[in-house]
Design a protein around this nucleic acid. Sequence first.
DNA 1: AATAAACGTCAATATTGTTGACCTATATTG
DNA 2: CAATATAGGTCAACAATATTGACGTTTATT
Lengths: 143, 143
Amino acid sequence: MEKNREEQLNEILVLFYFAYRTFTKEPDRILEQHGIQRVHHRILFFIARKPGLSVNELLATLEVSKQALHAPMRQLIEMGYIKSEPAEYDRRVRELRLTEKGEKLEKQLSNVQRKKMDAIFKEAGVKNEEVWKEIMKKIIENE
Amino acid sequence: MEKNREEQLNEILVLFYFAYRTFTKEPDRILEQHGIQRVHHRILFFIARKPGLSVNELLATLEVSKQALHAPMRQLIEMGYIKSEPAEYDRRVRELRLTEKGEKLEKQLSNVQRKKMDAIFKEAGVKNEEVWKEIMKKIIENE
DNA sequence: AATAAACGTCAATATTGTTGACCTATATTG
DNA sequence: CAATATAGGTCAACAATATTGACGTTTATT
């Protein structure tokens, strides 16, 4: 690879690293005030995106072991943020949902990120929003 | 916030999460073969970007404690990937540099990411590369 | 000479993740 | 129906990774 191009790509890697770190910083700060961590946010986030999703689906989404999910999930249940109820179609399956309290916290956490992205894309324009999204999709694609 | 807009923003958050995770997956796999972790990659990466940077600079860049950096850094030194030598201008300061072996490993790890981004941007075009970068910069900016 | 800075290191502690093993409840299948 | 599979919960052992606190050495600065 050409030297100059390599340096351009290095800048891109640096940007990706710092952007992601900055992006999670403010939610992390809020989470800390509640005595919980980033995993908890992820759990809340994905339940919010698909109310009623099963434990197995959540495991697959987060790519962690059942045992790793267990502790934070139990905490969230005990703290009254999420509820877990047997599915009607199969009573072995537990459907996960946010409580009102959980919805409130999830909103508080994710709104920081949504607002930030909204402001940036409002300035950048719809077309550039689409560009950014397409690039992120391509990164995910050929996993 | 309008409901539809909120859903668009949710997709953006999802993309960010999965893109970053995918992005680090392949280097993580290589690291594992060497019996080291993502921190080690970060250390190698930032030393490669600025040969001769000091321990303090590295600490500030990675935002970890001196003690947290210590173990992985010592490992890298013992494994012969990096060297740490007193700076001429101030012999208290240690200047960190990659050895040849370290350069090779750093290239192996980061090339996965550089090549991926290069391929994507080759397809997307220079203008869209600039768009993506500008957006990532804005995310970092108002930290 | 006193103080400060850069770095190294040990210790105690907390957190978070992994794998393995095993249990219950419920579905599915031969 | 009996055997088996699936979804989920939980305990235990272990590894890793981070934090804070404390303290030592070397070298600069004041």
